[in-house]
């Protein structure tokens, strides 16, 4: 499966690490687009092409939660959001899950195995969204999430 992944993190090193770990996980063939904050992420988000996003929480200009909320308004099909963050307190996790529709959380530092176990359940959603484009099932998944 080919996946267009948007990696949004203000740290260039973290973006490289996320991309390298995703390649090592061998879950899919990733095509990466990088952004250094939420503002740039919105510019680079393509509603027709972006399949998945990996987003840091704490960033300058626009944080990860606000970025995902904006994407949810602009998306044509459901785009799973993976938050990669140092935030691990329950209130914060709930805020992200409920308010912004984050699909899963990966707490830094993480291993390739953790990445695999967290991402595997999302791939069915991506496959369905890719198959249906902006169709009924994608819109339904969009609503349910």
């Amino acid at each position: 499966m080919n996946i267009n992944a948007l990696v949004v993190d203000d740290s260039g090193i973290m973006r490289k690490l996320v991309m390298r770990s995703l390649k090592e996980a061998e879950l899919a063939s990733f095509i990466f687009t990088e952004a250094k904050d939420g503002m740039e992420g919105l510019e680079k988000f393509d509603p027709d092409k972006t399949d998945m996003m990996f987003v840091d929480w704490n960033m300058p200009n626009m944080n990860g939660i606000d970025f995902i909320k904006k994407v949810r308004e602009a998306q044509k099909r459901y785009v799973p959001a993976v938050m990669i963050t140092t935030e691990s307190t329950m209130e914060k996790v709930e805020e992200a899950l409920n308010e912004a529709g984050v699909d899963t959380f990966i707490v830094k530092p993480f291993t390739v195995d953790v990445l695999k176990s967290k991402l595997e359940p999302l791939f069915d959603k991506i496959a369905a969204a890719q198959q249906n484009g902006g169709g009924f099932f994608s819109k339904l998944a969009n609503k349910l999430n």
Partner: peptide, 8 residues
């Protein structure tokens, strides 16, 4: 980033 993880 190391400090970010430390502070987290």
């Amino acid at each position: 980033e190391l400090t970010n993880i430390f502070a987290g």
